[in-house]
């Protein structure tokens, strides 16, 4: 499998995984539907050589599914609720979260923009969306640096005065974010980015047979979900 999945396929998979995992039924045949959803990020992780990540991912799901099965049969009351909340949280969010991470990691901004423009999304949506995409890792870097600075000044994240702490996070964050916004805009403009110009793309975006397989799998799950799962529809 040398071809990358099309960004549109990846987004579709992400939506279906989230719908099924968050709002779908979980017992009977739907256990297998969920299993299929859990498997999608796993396969993609293997494809991207994230072996240790994939291992942890599988271990967590095995644990959570086993715990759910066990507690349902043998525990009642408050303890059950507490356990179900924790396991529910993991089983619901992990697959979707992993998939979201994979979409971000394996899709370049330019592929993403290309795919969106193929869907005739207007530029006023495409450009900010692409920026969101680019900006998450930047926020992570900024947050890290602010943490260092706070640590050195002896300001803890959960300090005594929460409002003060909030201020000490907000001010440097605002300062550097607005600087980045400013410089990024200036640089993009000198690189001829404009709201109305027609762009070309070097990114090779398109559907091929892996897209088909994944999409069929997701469509199947979604159909099950809609017609037999009885839960919300898309």
């Amino acid at each position: 499998m040398t071809r990358k999945l099309d960004p549109r396929t990846k987004l579709f998979l992400l939506i279906v995984i989230n719908v099924v995992m968050m709002t779908g039924k979980i017992s009977g045949v739907f256990f297998y539907v969920r299993l299929a959803m859990v498997a999608i990020p796993f396969v993609l992780m293997l494809k991207n050589k994230m072996y240790s990540g994939a291992g942890i991912y599988v271990a967590m799901y095995t644990y959570v599914f086993a715990l759910e099965g066990y507690t349902m049969e043998s525990i009642n009351g408050v303890l059950l609720i507490i356990i179900l909340f924790t396991t529910g949280m993991v089983s619901r969010f992990l697959a979707g979260g992993m998939m979201a991470y994979l979409v971000m990691k394996t899709t370049t901004v330019s592929e993403f923009v290309t795919a969106m423009e193929r869907m005739h999304v207007p530029k006023v949506i495409v450009i900010p969306f692409a920026v969101i995409f680019r900006f998450f890792p930047t926020i992570k870097e900024e947050w890290q640096d602010i943490r260092y600075a706070m640590k050195m000044r002896g300001i803890g994240a959960g300090g005594k005065n929460i409002m003060q702490t909030l201020e000490y996070v907000t001010v440097p964050m605002a300062m550097s974010v607005s600087k980045i916004a400013d410089e990024l805009s200036a640089a993009s403009m000198t690189k001829c980015l404009s709201v109305d110009g027609k762009r070309t793309h070097i990114a090779k975006v398109g559907f091929s047979w892996p897209d088909l397989i994944f999409a069929l799998c997701a469509i199947g799950a979604l159909a099950m979900h809609i017609f037999y799962g009885g839960a919300i529809t898309g």
Binding site: F93, K123, V124, I127, P128, F129, A130, V131, I132, R134, F135, F136, I139, M173, V177, I180, A181, L184, S185, S188, M189, L193, S194, V195
Partner: peptide
């Protein structure tokens, strides 16, 4: 009219806002 600068600002602050809300929503 919206310019590149405005669109970039929308993207950046939407990302920041979403992240703040999302972390707490967890």
């Amino acid at each position: 009219r919206l310019e590149v600068k405005d669109l970039i600002n929308i993207g950046i602050y939407t990302a920041l806002h979403f992240l703040c809300v999302f972390i707490i929503a967890m």
